[in-house]
Design a binder for these strands. Sequence first.
DNA 1: TTGCGTGCAAAGGTTTTGCATGGCA
DNA 2: TGCCATGCAAAACCTTTGCACGCAA
Lengths: 139, 139
Amino acid sequence: METSYATKQGGLILALLKAEPGRHFTADDIMKMLSDGGNAVGKATVYRHLDKLIKQGRVRKYIVDEGSSACFEYIGEEHSCHEHYHLKCSVCGKLLHVRCEYLDEVAEHILGHHGFVISPEKTVLYGICENCREASDEK
Amino acid sequence: METSYATKQGGLILALLKAEPGRHFTADDIMKMLSDGGNAVGKATVYRHLDKLIKQGRVRKYIVDEGSSACFEYIGEEHSCHEHYHLKCSVCGKLLHVRCEYLDEVAEHILGHHGFVISPEKTVLYGICENCREASDEK
DNA sequence: TTGCGTGCAAAGGTTTTGCATGGCA
DNA sequence: TGCCATGCAAAACCTTTGCACGCAA
């Protein structure tokens, strides 16, 4: 399975993502952070490693808005059971992570009643976050 | 409110979408179909009309995969889509409309526990539909 | 006549690919 | 040494924008 070499760049990228599981990075973030750390890595290399990590199931890719960059997040090697969903605020753009058993029940319901398997890693629930709601209420 | 002109192109685009509510079109689909029908319309015009229709709430935009085109769907003028959620199959691209009280409870839960107001009309749950799941199971 | 709508082409942004070079095993 | 990985630049892709002309009201 593992036919690839262990390279410096691959190690750097994985280490960066792994250092903050759950944090979202864009491809550009990764390049900038590595560059700032004195280890510039080409963007093609970054994308190629991200693709590999996604195929291995260690990283997830999220599409928040078309036209802007995709987000990548380290999700670990083993605990795939800790799925979580994303809430995206349409107003401020903030992305919230929600770990919630309730949502797992929902997925089961959808499967049972509608024959549809939800992919939490691709799903983003849109709405308005608390801060923005309060801000608009004050108007 | 209605400060815009009624043009031939705008009518064609709306008619095309309206003819099949719930079907999803890419911008390219729309251009090709109009072109095949003998009414070629520029892509800039297509995008500009889609933007308008989205702002009016008559059309919804979906992002299925980054890198590929966005999908657009006619959702009607009056019967607001506040009542149902959308499930989009990542494999076959089919869009399912699900009306389900269970999902309303979810929205309440998210609001109560996470302070986040879900916008059903913007939210799409991604996953794999029954047909595609069975098809892949057979492999 | 007024000024929005149209369409072409060019620009804008992200991601992918080609190819020569560099580095791991 | 063999072969994958790298990185630069160019290509590919979807979408937006600029501008002159056309058309609805």
